[in-house]
């Protein structure tokens, strides 16, 4: 049984591969003259020759971000990109309550990109690093942009200074009331 399948496999194999390419260079033996060693062609290239990591990463974007919305938030050529200083709201598609905070750092690393959100509840600073390509994250909304961006991309220095974030949720509510 095994032998039969083996033979069949051999047959299919030889039909798959065209005539073996013959290597002519090198390997001269003293007495027999030039000896030719048969060299079989390699199997067709996977992914049409695309490097594996490139393929995997592109495939991940397709799977995790089919509309390209999250990717465009990090795209530097996009005028409405996510920047440090923006106030954002992250909405989840499971039971988790939405998360609001000021972006103090954006780390770009393909599908592993994340943003660092800072907020304060009752004068206590809380920082959450959020991987935005996680499929449980439904939306990333920019609620407010600063009138003037700070000259640094990482705003770690604002921690514990007078530049630090205040209670964002309550200040946003106040703003809403005023506008109403």
């Amino acid at each position: 049984m095994l032998l039969q399948s083996f033979k069949a496999l051999r047959a299919t194999r030889s039909s798959l591969i065209s005539t073996p390419i013959i290597q002519t260079a090198g390997y001269k033996t003293q007495y027999l003259g030039q000896k030719v060693v048969k060299v079989y062609q390699p199997l067709p290239k996977l992914r049409e020759g695309t490097p594996l990591m490139k393929y995997v990463k592109e495939n991940q974007y397709k799977k995790l971000d089919p509309n390209g919305v999250k990717k465009s938030l990090l795209d530097k050529s996009n005028p409405s990109l996510l920047r440090s200083g923006d106030i954002v709201r992250i909405t989840y598609n499971n039971k988790q309550p939405p998360l609001v905070g000021m972006v103090i750092a954006v780390k770009r690393n393909g599908c592993d990109s994340n943003i660092l959100l800072r907020n304060s509840y009752a004068k206590l600073g809380v920082e959450i690093r959020v991987p935005i390509f996680n499929p449980v994250i439904e939306r990333v909304d920019i609620l407010k942009r600063p009138t003037k961006y700070r000259s640094r991309n990482k705003l770690y220095y604002i921690r514990g200074t007078k530049l630090d974030v205040t209670d964002i949720e309550s200040s946003l509510k106040k703003q809403q009331r005023r506008s109403n």
Partner: peptide, 10 residues
């Protein structure tokens, strides 16, 4: 487990 990281100020 979802990959997010949390830290507090105290």
């Amino acid at each position: 487990p979802d990959g997010s990281v949390i830290r507090f100020d105290d």
